Amino acid sequence: MGAIFSGNTPLLQVAEPKLIQQILVKDFHVFVDRNSISLSSKHPIVGKILPELQGEDWKRVRSITTPVFTSGKMRRMYPLVRQSVEEFMNALSEYLKDKHEINVKDMYGCLTMDVIANCAFADAFKVPNNAFVVNGRNVFKIPSRKEL
């Protein structure tokens, strides 16, 4: 564990796997209210994802999503994640070979969408103008804060 700060506010960072499991699995009901550092909570879609929710809304969504991430289901997802990462690495290699400039944010955005939707209905690296990919990008176009 180590102390980190968000401005003048101390935050606790946990890195011990057993303690993380205790917090995120067994005692998650205790941690329903967290400070939100995101500016996206007003976005009609992004504001409804788990990291943006607070209180009872967070607890309800967490209870719904938890069964999706059992160890058995995660093991079955591994080959799909690995395939997406391999395609991501191949795409990066092509950009580097051709010495093209790359937008890292867009590349990682494609990787994220590809992992999420690999087995359902999108292949973000091969069809970048796929409706799922385009709409996914639009959802995550959130104005960033100005850094001082």
Rank of each mutant, 00 (worst) to 15 (best):
L24C: 15
E147K: 12
K126W: 02
K141S: 07
R75K: 15
F88N: 06
E86T: 10
V127R: 14
K73S: 10
I116W: 04
S36D: 05
D57P: 00
I23D: 00
K48V: 01
Q54R: 12
E86L: 15
E56P: 01
L19K: 07
K146D: 11
P44E: 06
E56L: 10
V30T: 00
D57V: 01
K126F: 05
L53G: 00
E87S: 12
S36F: 02
A122K: 03
R82C: 07
K146T: 14
M77C: 10
P79T: 11
L148Q: 08
G47S: 01
I142C: 05
T70G: 09
M77D: 08
L19M: 13
V115W: 03
I142F: 07
R76N: 11
G136A: 07
L53I: 06
H43I: 00
S63T: 11
L24P: 02
K59R: 08
R62H: 13
A120R: 13
F31L: 01
E101D: 14
N138F: 06
F5N: 07
A122T: 09
D57E: 14
S6T: 10
Q22D: 12
V30S: 00
S93G: 14
F140V: 10
R62T: 03
K42G: 00
M77P: 02
P79W: 08
F140R: 02
S36W: 02
L92M: 15
Q54G: 04
P128K: 10
E56N: 12
F132D: 01
A117N: 10
L148C: 04
R145A: 12
K141A: 06
V139L: 13
H29N: 04
N135R: 12
I116P: 03
Y95L: 15
E94I: 10
T112Y: 05
A15Q: 08
K48C: 03
P51D: 08
R76P: 01
F132Q: 05
G47V: 00
H43N: 01
Q21N: 15
V139M: 08
E86H: 12
V32A: 05
V85D: 05
V14P: 01
M74T: 12
S40C: 00
R137W: 06
P67H: 10
N103D: 15
K97T: 13
C119W: 04
